[in-house]
Computed example of a mutant assay.
Amino acid sequence: MKCKGFLFDLDGTLVDSLAVVERAWKNWGKRHGIAPEEVLGFIHGKQAITSLRHFMSGASAKEIQQEFIALEKLEAEDIDSVVALPSAVELLSQLDELEISWAIVTSGSLPVASARHAAAGLPAPAAFVTAECVERGKPEPDAYLLGAQLLDLEPEECVVVEDAAAGILSGLASGSHVIAVNAPADSPRLEDVDMVLSSLEELIISKNPDGSVNVHRKH
């Protein structure tokens, strides 16, 4: 597979924030009388506001916004257990050394995503697309289309790296190549992605003289 740039999801792809995310949402569900499995079965890979609108369908916009502000504050402050996933820092640093463009494209809000990015000690991306940047979140393609645009690349010149079903669908809808990393086995359209990995450690990157990038999987 050849490309010119990378578009990385953040949570579950570059950083391990699962405990933080699930703790916050389980507690939220408990307060609202919603079973944890129902909440966790919906939220992953989606914007928080999308999940709140789903579970609070009868509430006013003001009530939903108040819940969002409270949840965002909680998640932005709860970073003690947030760490970079194996090989994430090394991979991003290698891309920087090879002068290969890359961006982070997340469903998280700017305060939450920035806090987790910093806590994990990741290098700075060329572009940081957060929930505030697009009207329609994943699984719609908007976020990844914007990420490619900010790198001054066409979507088909980019590789989306994702762990969540919503993000995989978003990447495919954008027309980019897609690598699924540690994605659930029952993720829709998993058979359509270019590569399925269990870890970023399996990824091999090399740059050609013409500036294009080769992407391989370790055997």
Rank of each mutant, 00 (worst) to 15 (best):
residue 86 P to L: 04
residue 86 P to K: 04
residue 86 P to E: 02
residue 86 P to H: 06
residue 87 S to P: 01
residue 87 S to E: 05
residue 87 S to M: 07
residue 88 A to Q: 14
residue 88 A to L: 03
residue 89 V to G: 00
residue 89 V to R: 15
residue 90 E to A: 08
residue 92 L to V: 10
residue 93 S to E: 14
residue 93 S to H: 07
residue 94 Q to T: 13
residue 97 E to A: 13
residue 98 L to Y: 04
residue 99 E to H: 14
residue 99 E to Q: 05
residue 99 E to S: 14
residue 100 I to G: 01
residue 100 I to V: 12
residue 100 I to N: 11
residue 100 I to A: 10
residue 100 I to K: 13
residue 100 I to H: 12
residue 101 S to D: 08
residue 101 S to I: 00
residue 102 W to H: 10
residue 102 W to Q: 03
residue 103 A to D: 02
residue 104 I to T: 14
residue 105 V to T: 05
residue 106 T to K: 11
residue 106 T to N: 01
residue 106 T to V: 01
residue 108 G to M: 00
residue 108 G to K: 05
residue 109 S to T: 09
residue 109 S to G: 15
residue 110 L to K: 06
residue 112 V to L: 15
residue 113 A to W: 02
residue 113 A to R: 03
residue 113 A to L: 07
residue 113 A to I: 03
residue 113 A to H: 00
residue 113 A to E: 03
residue 113 A to V: 02
residue 115 A to V: 09
residue 115 A to Y: 08
residue 115 A to R: 14
residue 116 R to E: 03
residue 116 R to C: 07
residue 117 H to L: 11
residue 118 A to K: 11
residue 118 A to Y: 03
residue 119 A to E: 10
residue 121 G to F: 12
residue 121 G to L: 09
residue 122 L to S: 13
residue 123 P to A: 08
residue 126 A to Q: 02
residue 126 A to G: 01
residue 126 A to I: 01
residue 127 A to H: 11
residue 127 A to R: 01
residue 127 A to D: 10
residue 128 F to D: 11
residue 128 F to L: 14
residue 128 F to Q: 14
residue 129 V to K: 13
residue 130 T to W: 01
residue 130 T to Q: 08
residue 130 T to I: 09
residue 130 T to E: 08
residue 131 A to M: 01
residue 131 A to C: 06
residue 133 C to M: 13
residue 133 C to Y: 04
residue 133 C to D: 13
residue 133 C to R: 08
residue 134 V to G: 00
residue 135 E to K: 10
residue 136 R to G: 03
residue 136 R to V: 03
residue 137 G to T: 11
residue 138 K to H: 02
residue 139 P to W: 11
residue 139 P to N: 07
residue 139 P to M: 11
residue 140 E to T: 01
residue 140 E to M: 02
residue 141 P to K: 05
residue 141 P to N: 09
residue 144 Y to Q: 09
residue 144 Y to N: 04
residue 144 Y to L: 14
residue 146 L to Y: 13
residue 146 L to D: 13
residue 147 G to Q: 08
residue 147 G to M: 01
residue 148 A to W: 01
residue 148 A to D: 03
residue 149 Q to A: 12
residue 149 Q to R: 15
residue 149 Q to H: 15
residue 149 Q to T: 15
residue 151 L to C: 06
residue 152 D to E: 15
residue 153 L to E: 09
residue 153 L to R: 13
residue 153 L to S: 14
residue 154 E to G: 06
residue 155 P to A: 13
